[in-house]
Amino acid sequence: MCDVLDKVENRCIAKGKAEGEDTLALLMKKLFDQNRIEDAKRASEDKEYRARLMKEFGIS
């Protein structure tokens, strides 16, 4: 039973990680499309700023 739960948990973690990567990639694409290089650099290091940019672009 624990093996099954571990596998399910690992799949959920992997799915969450993939979705997070896709979200970050979308933010970076939007920033680069607008030539907002400094914003992209800051977003890569500053979690709160990244969240503000995601809200600005309507990314959840």
Rank of each mutant, 00 (worst) to 15 (best):
E21W: 02
L31D: 03
R11Y: 12
K30N: 04
R42T: 14
N10C: 09
G58N: 13
D3C: 10
E21G: 05
I37N: 07
D22T: 10
M54Q: 14
I13E: 13
Y49A: 09
E9N: 10
D3T: 08
E48S: 14
R50M: 15
D33F: 05
A18L: 12
L5K: 09
E21H: 05
V8K: 11
K30W: 01
N35S: 15
E45K: 10
E45Q: 12
D22Y: 01
F32R: 14
K29G: 05
A14F: 01
K47M: 13
K17Q: 11
I59P: 01
R52D: 15
K55H: 12
I37Q: 12
I59C: 04
R11H: 11
T23Y: 01
V4W: 12
R11S: 07
E56F: 00
K29N: 09
E21Q: 13
I13G: 08
E56I: 02
V4G: 07
D6K: 14
T23H: 02
T23L: 15
M28P: 00
E38N: 13
M1T: 07
S60E: 15
R52N: 13
L27E: 03
S60H: 13
T23Q: 12
I59V: 11
K15S: 13
L53I: 05
K30P: 04
L5R: 09
E38S: 13
C12K: 08
M1R: 09
F32I: 12
E21F: 07
K41S: 07
A43D: 02
R36I: 03
V8H: 09
G20Q: 05
C2F: 13
L24N: 07
I37P: 03
K41N: 08
R36P: 01
M1K: 10
E9Y: 13
L31Q: 03
R50Y: 03
M54N: 02
D6E: 13
E56W: 00
K7Q: 12
E21T: 08
A18F: 10
K55D: 14
L5I: 12
